[in-house]
């Protein structure tokens, strides 16, 4: 049991150490791929903004038979 506990603690410790070492060789996509003429996202958000939920519906996404509000002309 003692060997098992030490093994688990060491595995987690080595994993955390690996995460820190590997992070030094990594860059965010917005850092790696942005240029003076192309902006690639912001840290913590994405290209469609922080409020994007993924539930955007276009005019062609309406379910068949679903009634929509009549347009005012």
């Amino acid at each position: 049991m003692k060997a098992f506990a030490v093994a688990v603690i060491c595995a987690v410790a080595i994993g955390i150490a690996a995460s820190y070492v590997l992070s030094t060789s990594q860059r965010y996509a917005w850092q790696a791929f942005s240029t003076s003429s192309a902006r690639v996202s912001h840290p913590g958000t994405n290209l469609v903004g922080p409020r994007w939920t993924g539930d955007v519906k276009g005019p062609h996404d309406e379910v068949a038979g679903e009634t929509t509000a009549p347009k005012r002309s």
Binding site: V6, A7, V8, A11
Partner: peptide, 14 residues
């Protein structure tokens, strides 16, 4: 021995 069990369990849990 202890080291053999340690290395076995570290590999096994991972």
């Amino acid at each position: 021995n202890g080291f053999e069990r340690f290395t076995h369990w570290m590999t096994a849990t991972c």
